[in-house]
Write a protein that binds this DNA or RNA. Structure first.
Length: 359
DNA sequence: AAGCCGGGGTA
DNA sequence: TACCCAGGCTT
């Protein structure tokens, strides 16, 4: 069983807070105390690097500076601003939650664990991060950085991908919070994990905790944290049609749930085993859009890897041979420049860019 | 408990 | 290549 003394906790807190005051980065969301703005930053930062988030957060705050602005914004416009960040359910959940804060909390982000955790898209980490950073509430905020720092500092060999381990790290992280310093302390743990106690080749010589780090004392810092291995992406063949009608091409909206929910893309679908890409297009397009299609020529190939699957996409130029263009809520006909106005997955952005290059 | 859900940076 | 990133939701 893990033993951490009160004196040890005090020492860790002192060292980390001093180090943080002298070394913290000047990040845009550290210049505000607005809980809404900090909340948005935490959602963007889920599984996403700081450097990636910065320009997105700046644009988002310019367009939606308040809870009310985001609550009343059109969903597709918000999705467009999120385009390229990935994990698009994050922004759908965020807007749902912000609308609830607008309607039920008078626009004020709740400051209790129970209330904020009830909001969609707010899990244990985000709840703790917003409460501690924005309101200085002494609750833990355990992300990947904190797992790594604490597993090394106290030489904890539990598999951090297991829920039981998460609870253990959370209680430890809560125990370590110096009185009145929840905001700075939680951020200092994450900052150390991001800049010093990094996954590979941790910079122990410049670490403020080196003298008290149990893993360093045993030379085990490279072996922690322990986490289960994940499966490789599953390969999937995708057939895509660039369907022309004059100077316009067809884009269709994906379902509002599942992969890339609500985004626009060129029509097509998954190639069944044994079928070719062309056969798939000949089957899917008329079936879904009620018009015969003629495949004219191969246009481009796109490879795109997600966290759990790998698209092998082949696109073909096509034309409609029927007498009318399909028209529906989930279908739009756009010229190549208008393609930039709708939120598209990166794989299809590559096709759109290739089309714009033709002009 | 395991799977789903993006995209990009790094060694 | 493989890992991992200020994770959360669904089944």
């Amino acid at each position: 069983m893990l033993e951490v003394s009160y004196q040890e906790a005090v020492e860790v807190g002192r060292r980390l807070l001093r180090w943080y005051m002298e070394n913290k980065r000047d990040l845009p969301w550290r210049r505000t105390k607005d809980p809404y703005k900090i909340w948005v930053s935490e959602v963007m930062l889920q599984q996403t690097r700081v450097e990636t988030v910065i320009p997105y957060w700046n644009r988002f705050m310019e367009r939606y500076p308040t809870v009310e602005a985001l609550a009343t914004a059109p969903e597709e416009e918000v999705l467009k601003l999120w385009e390229g960040l990935g994990y698009y359910s994050r922004v759908r959940n965020l807007q749902t939650a912000v609308r609830e804060v607008h309607a039920n909390y008078g626009g004020r982000v709740p400051d209790t664990l129970e209330e904020i955790s009830s909001l969609s898209g707010v899990g244990p980490y985000t709840a703790g991060a917003v409460l501690s950073i924005a309101y200085n509430v002494p609750v833990p905020a355990v992300d990947g950085n904190v797992f790594r720092v604490l597993s090394r500092l106290f030489l904890i060999e539990d598999d951090v991908s297991k829920p039981a381990a998460r609870r253990k790290f959370e209680s430890l992280a809560e125990f370590l919070i110096p009185p009145g310093e929840a905001s700075n302390f939680n951020q200092s743990l994450m900052e150390l994990g991001a800049k010093v106690c990094i996954p590979k080749y941790p910079r122990c010589p410049e670490c403020p905790l080196q003298e008290v780090c149990r893993a360093h004392a045993e030379g085990m810092q490279e072996d922690l944290p322990v986490k289960g291995k994940k499966k490789p992406p599953k390969p999937i063949d995708i057939a895509t049609g660039i369907v022309w009608n004059g100077d316009k091409v067809m884009v269709v909206r994906r379902p509002l749930t599942g992969l890339l929910a609500g985004m626009w893309e060129f029509p097509g679908g998954e190639v069944a085993p044994g079928d070719t890409h062309q056969e798939t297009l000949q089957r899917i397009l008329p079936e879904k859009y009620a018009q015969p299609i003629e495949i004219q020529s191969h246009f481009a190939d796109v490879q795109h890897t997600f966290s759990h699957l790998h698209w092998n996409l082949k696109a073909f130029s096509c034309s409609i041979t029927g007498d009318s263009c399909p028209d529906a809520e989930a279908i739009r006909w756009l010229n190549v420049w208008q393609l930039s106005d709708v939120p598209m997955p990166v794989a299809h952005q590559k096709l759109a860019k290739a089309l714009q290059g033709l002009v």
